[in-house]
Design a protein around this nucleic acid. Structure first.
Lengths: 342, 342
DNA sequence: CTGAAAGCGCTAACAC
DNA sequence: GTGTTAGCGCTTTCAG
């Protein structure tokens, strides 16, 4: 079965043919091969044919690295996201758009790790990518200042970057939280709690602040209702306990992101979920199949991704254009869990 | 706000300093700079210091492309998967392992499209990646023959490649289907139906065949019970209708992959799901939160990913080693939907 | 239309 | 220890 590799001795990687080899085989100059490979029309038909034959017989494939080194452009854009291999319509949109433009996408996971993010970003810079889209994790990205100065375009997605001046596209967190709150308030709830991500995270900060603002604007007390923090099951359980079993139990709940929503649903178990009104921030997979189906305020992640890469293109085309921050609206998706009356 | 870029005129990308510039700045030879950059210990401490100062003042970053061209290795492995930006523990495992080995991962989506797959694979070859992992889509990959010959290691994941000799890791589809069948049979079901992917797809073929074999080995007729085909809602609905509303309605159902499972659950609606026994092939997100919770035969995708990259490493280390196909067992996860009695 | 030669930014022999 | 000199494989002036 391994006969296909019979010619290969262990460890001896056969050398690939280069343009010189092709030129020799075809009996033309190196330059002519290059022209054929790049579809330059100024090549005589018979020469072109000879070259193509030589390419086929030698199985020549141009070395992209050499071309990139010479031309100075990589035709590749980088995406440093929190998780490739997780549902991420923004990333999907970026890849699709990049492909449309004939660009390659180099995607890597920061894994919510600041050091890892830095590694990836620096590595992308060393590879001289045409541009970088990043879902920022770290608190300061000032180490990228020299890279920006050197001309590598960077666009932030989901959160702004601090320490450097980069374009940014993100959701309208405040309005999204407001939407969720008002929806529940409109269904008669007067004790609405919030459980969400830590305020050390930008979006966690924005959403918790927006929720507090919503409470105040409705003349409600804040204490016991707003629970930002780490996303451990224990912490969420504790927060849930305070919210539901205090002196004045909440009758409705806003969860600040997908992981919180799922954690809460798991904790509530099957039946309890139908007595408490819940609106989740962020879409959840199979939300429509849950019981009751989950009402969410959904981010328009596809638009976010598309905008990110468009901002990047614009920045590449004109490094001097004014910085831009795009805020993308969210959408309330009514499915049942948020329509439980008080 | 755009002051940080004040120095950049539109379109004029500032040239980055090279090693020559650093050498001049530091007053040493090019070679010495190279040594410092590569942490070569044979550099005098004061020279090293001078170089480091020069690097910092000029904001020098070595150009990875040039290094790759010179050394011949890219330090990058490619993964052509069906979808990045979707849940894919195999990809996650690959990325993590690659990182551990100091390799960069270049991931791209074939998007279930044969032409796209070909584009990506060829592009990866032109970039001279150290190796490629692919979830094959196309029916023949013989066009990769020259590339293999030229020494680029390729490993197939989830399905074998046809037309070329490549290592492969995949799930034990037949056993998985057998497990699902026997589980339902053990709960008293005597009319068990199967709805799954088209038999034009390798795994669809394997699973449908295994299901037919299971039926036969239990002396049951096959007609009306095995429904492979396209994954459109209409087709699945029609298959479901035949299975449930025929002369001898099925009392249990095996769904052949995640998309089929979800389609079926959507079609059945909330209540019907608790009367029909269902075992899904493939894990489904939030399966434990559904009602009833979904029993599945889960692929060990993390192991598949880890195995894929280990096979790749082994192949890179020894191109002459015998071809290997690794079959990974599946696991029955009992949650409720598969334990409804006949 | 085609060819010779220079060079992209770096590493690797081989002197000194 | 350090510097000099070749290239890696390609594109690109610039002559023919």
């Amino acid at each position: 079965m391994s006969s296909a590799r019979a010619g290969n001795r262990a460890g001896v990687r056969p050398k690939r043919p280069t343009m010189v080899d092709v030129a020799r085989e075809a009996g033309v100059a190196l330059r002519t091969v290059s022209r054929v490979v790049n579809n330059d029309p100024t090549v005589g038909p018979e020469n072109a044919a000879k070259v193509r034959v030589a390419i086929a017989t030698l199985n020549f494939r141009p070395d992209e690295r050499a071309r990139q080194l010479r031309t100075g452009i990589t035709g590749t854009i980088g995406a440093a996201v929190r998780r490739i291999a997780e549902v991420n319509p923004a990333l999907a949109a970026i890849e699709q758009t990049a492909r449309t433009w004939g660009q390659t996408l180099l995607a890597a996971s920061t894994d919510f790790d600041e050091a890892r993010e830095r590694e990836i970003l620096i590595s992308m810079c060393r590879q001289r990518l045409d541009g970088i889209i990043v879902e920022p994790i770290g608190e300061s990205h000032s180490y990228l200042e020299p890279e920006l100065e050197a001309g590598i375009p960077v666009v932030a997605m989901d959160r702004p970057m601090s320490g450097i001046a980069a374009d940014c596209v993100m959701s309208d967190n405040a309005s999204g939280i407001g939407m969720a709150f008002h929806h529940l308030h409109g269904h008669g709830h007067r004790r609405i709690a919030y459980i969400g991500d830590s305020e050390r995270v930008f979006s966690g900060r924005e959403r918790a602040a927006a929720f507090r603002a919503a409470l105040r604007s409705h003349g409600q007390p804040v204490e016991g209702l707003v629970h930002p923090g780490e996303l451990t099951p224990e912490r969420v359980a504790a927060a849930l306990d305070v919210a539901l079993h205090g002196a004045a139990p909440a009758t409705a709940l806003v969860t600040g992101n997908m992981d919180t929503t799922i954690a809460v649903l798991r904790l509530l178990g099957r039946e309890a979920a139908s007595r408490l009104a819940i609106v989740g921030f962020d879409e959840v997979p199979l939300a429509d199949l849950l019981q009751p189906a989950l009402t969410v305020v959904a981010q328009d992640t596809a638009t976010i991704g598309r905008t990110a890469i468009e901002l990047l293109r614009a920045r590449i085309a004109d490094p001097a254009r004014p910085l831009q921050t795009v805020i993308v609206p969210l959408e309330l998706r009514i499915r049942g869990s948020g329509e439980v009356r008080a």
